[in-house]
């Protein structure tokens, strides 16, 4: 159990940066009336951010070159998506996804 001065500063500094990024927008939105274009812009944030977060694990970046697919993740994504279509349950998507990945790893695929 030890902590260096640098580590302490990193925890406090990054903590402050993160909490401000999260909290300041709440203070702004509470006190200001947002213009219609901003509300329209924000209505697309959920679908765009979730798509981008999915892409983050489905593509592998290569600096200066085109990205490639993360084969294991893409393969496991298929049964996971099917589970979503069939059950519309988040829990089932996660459980089927984990099981699919465990099977892929067992057979060393991807």
């Amino acid at each position: 159990m030890s902590i260096s001065l640098t580590e302490l500063w990193v925890i406090l500094g990054c903590g402050a940066i993160t909490v401000l990024s999260r909290v300041l927008p709440f203070a702004f939105v509470k006190s200001l009336n947002m213009p219609a274009w901003l509300i329209s812009f924000l209505s697309f944030v959920p679908i765009t951010i979730m798509t981008a977060l999915c892409c983050e694990s489905l593509f592998v970046a290569h600096a200066g070159h085109l990205a490639t697919l993360n084969v294991a993740n893409c393969l496991a994504a298929i049964p996971a998506t099917l589970a979503g279509v069939l059950t519309k349950s988040l829990l089932m998507v996660v459980v089927v996804g984990i099981m699919a990945m465990a099977v892929l790893r067992y057979f060393s695929i991807g």
Binding site: P46, I47, M50, T51, L53, C54, S57, L58, N73, A76, A77, A80, T81, G84, V85, K88, S89, L90, V93, V94, V96, G97, I98, A100, M101
Partner: peptide, 14 residues
Amino acid sequence: FALTAMFIGLVYLQ
């Protein structure tokens, strides 16, 4: 893979 699966589920439900 749980995290990826979760985002796939959430984006589909969205």
